[in-house]
Design a protein around this nucleic acid. Sequence first.
DNA 1: ACAAATTAGTAAAGCGGTTTACAAGCCGAT
DNA 2: ATCGGCTTGTAAACCGCTTTACTAATTTGT
Lengths: 334, 334
Amino acid sequence: MATLSEVAEAAGVSPTAVSRYLNNRIELPQATRDRIDAAIAKLNYRPNLLAKRLSTGKTEAISLVTPEIANPFFAELAAAVEAAAQQHGYAVYMSSTQGDRAREIDAIQRLQDQHVDGLIMMTNQPDDGTLAALLEPHHNVVLLDEDIPGVPVPRVFVENEQGGYLATRHLIEAGHREIAIIGGPQRLMSVSERLAGFERAMHEAELPVRPGWVLLGQYTRDYGRAAAMHLLHSAQRPTAILACSDYIAIGVLQATRQAGIDVPDGLSLVGFDDMPFAELVDPPLTTIRQPVAEMGRVAFDRLLAQINKTDAEPLTRLPVSLVIRKSVRDIRAT
Amino acid sequence: MATLSEVAEAAGVSPTAVSRYLNNRIELPQATRDRIDAAIAKLNYRPNLLAKRLSTGKTEAISLVTPEIANPFFAELAAAVEAAAQQHGYAVYMSSTQGDRAREIDAIQRLQDQHVDGLIMMTNQPDDGTLAALLEPHHNVVLLDEDIPGVPVPRVFVENEQGGYLATRHLIEAGHREIAIIGGPQRLMSVSERLAGFERAMHEAELPVRPGWVLLGQYTRDYGRAAAMHLLHSAQRPTAILACSDYIAIGVLQATRQAGIDVPDGLSLVGFDDMPFAELVDPPLTTIRQPVAEMGRVAFDRLLAQINKTDAEPLTRLPVSLVIRKSVRDIRAT
DNA sequence: ACAAATTAGTAAAGCGGTTTACAAGCCGAT
DNA sequence: ATCGGCTTGTAAACCGCTTTACTAATTTGT
């Protein structure tokens, strides 16, 4: 592997000249440039990244922390971030934390250790302050999808409240009055916001929000199934359920199957996220779509701005939209 | 950020001593060790990875190249690789190539540039020799899931032939005799192997393989739909289809819906991969399961062996299994 | 024609570790 | 008393690039 000095020698100039030429920090006459180019070609020179990094302190890499890369939602997000990063010449270092706090801390550590220039952080569990404290001294971080309160960095979220509102409105407009909501961990921002949207729509329609019909637990299929089971076996059953994630919705669907209830005829259901499988399940799921690709792109843009010390928008809210499929039945006709 | 020299000074020893102590290349008396440890703690010293990497030429990172990280199959594989890498202290750089040859080359380039210590390569399009030539000089590479012929590196594949065989046998045992197969690009190893398994089962049962019922195109939903459309509209229709991927199977399902044919009553269907959505679709898909997590783990193990110059198994074939759900109907009873 | 300004570079000091080669001090054995 | 061999280190080169500070040669302005 040829080095810069070897190239310089072959071209009859100093290493400095070659370095500066390659980094566009000097204007050289055509003749000199040709000699250098020739030397580079002849030696098949490629700059040693490791050396460059040590010298500049920049890594041209960012870290992407997701709870679980195998989850299609995060995988899509990761793909979008990676595409944006690639365009700007950044490599992406991935880590799935599996909801493990230690791994999240690890990832932040790597930022401290100059392993990467920046960090896009997604988490799916409430922070007890640990993460916030660790993140506090860093500016080159972006929070994506879910909040970690008290960290002075840009955030990229979706209009969760609006999503909850749209979904609930859709149910109400289909004639539903007995609506339950199943969501993830109560302390998660996305959950409380979606719930707020639900409540706004209910109040607007002068419908009561029954405490027993607000079930907050986990963003998982299992929780969705358990919660739905509970609802379906209680004395009074809702006619519709708003699931705060498509995973939860899938769980609900399992429960209805088990209970012998048809969706949408016996129960209407709206999901959240529009995961790739949402249109494949039976029935195809009416759900709230998040602009996943855009979230990834915007998150990277914000991070790049932070890395370059340009001021980034502190909070970006991306719009959601209702995707109507077949899991909601209009019961006004009845 | 404190440096090694500062630690050395604070501990009253030379930088060499500290470096060697930290890397377990020297035995020091307790007193000295305590002084060094105290200095490290006091200065909150963390070794600079960039410097270490330049010095040692090792990066403690590997690169994972997938066609498309948003695809759940690759995402799961990536998750498994990442988990294994994490355990051994390796970071993982991800790149999705989107089937773009230039991006694949890019990734190999990064290996050459010592960006990473090793490379796990997945591709989903036949190689014209370009990749093979680029990969040839490298030993620290592992090919996963799909072959690139002529590269002298370890490979980790599944028993594709056996998968094709199992799926076909299952259909034959359910009484099917008119079986079509829809697969990905003909030149892809996985395709030809799965086809070979199909043919073996057919021959064994003394059933003819009709050329018009072997449709090889893309591993996509769209191709699956188009191919199924074609089959369903021809004069003679198969009673069963073997789809060489679950994506293709989904496409087939779309086509049957459009054509008003019920699965499994009007047509039996077996998929391949057992993607997460396979059990969620309607009807739940009978399919061939690949041991995704194990594939990722084994691939990393092989790569690690290569990096450490221990000889790795040149070819590993992981077993597949049939997962019976509801997309195949036994027509013998008819 | 001569100073000033520009052009076309260079030498050398980092960046923060690792590693090779070498050495002082001390001990036990001869 | 001396030799060899451990123990406990150290000095300095090196990894390959970037960058600051500087200069010789050439052009421009007057």
